[in-house]
């Protein structure tokens, strides 16, 4: 059974999005289900800070020895932080996908769209 914490939002592309902060910034990562399916992550490519991203566009990728997965922008906005720790240790995505293995922080143009993403219950149903 994969871990799907409550209090986060989810996408059909197996990403999670945190509750927006007061300034509209959300943290984004891939789910436990996604990291398990992908296998040991050895390389992550992500947009630089300041990059503008549009919801559901491909903005990066996560690679294991077995396969590669695209990273999609779950929402539109601007990248305000990327997890630099992943450059040295991409396996944080496997060991702590909702914590130290986060990918990006995005300042969301319209924070209300986050409410349209999947709840933990919706996402649980999707991954069975």
């Amino acid at each position: 059974m994969s871990n799907i914490p409550e209090g986060l939002y989810y996408t059909a592309e197996h990403e999670w999005v945190s509750e927006p902060a007061v300034d509209g910034t959300v943290r984004v990562g891939i789910t436990d289900f996604a990291q398990d399916a992908l296998g040991d992550v050895v390389y992550v490519q992500m947009p630089e800070e300041g990059t503008g991203v549009t919801g559901s566009d491909v903005i990066g990728e996560v690679e294991s020895t077995k396969s590669v997965s695209d990273i999609y922008a779950p929402v539109s906005g601007q990248v305000v932080a990327r997890n630099e720790a992943l450059d040295d240790d991409p396996s944080l995505i496997n060991s702590d996908p909702y914590g130290e293995g986060w990918l990006l922080e995005i300042k969301v143009s319209d924070p209300s769209v986050v409410q349209d993403l999947l709840s933990s219950a919706d996402y649980s149903q999707q991954v069975g």
């Binding site: 296998g39 040991d40 294991s64 020895t65 396996s91």
Partner: peptide
């Protein structure tokens, strides 16, 4: 396919 970590196994 793997037991725990395919990288560790490699």
């Amino acid at each position: 396919l793997k037991y725990r970590s395919e990288l560790q196994e490699h």
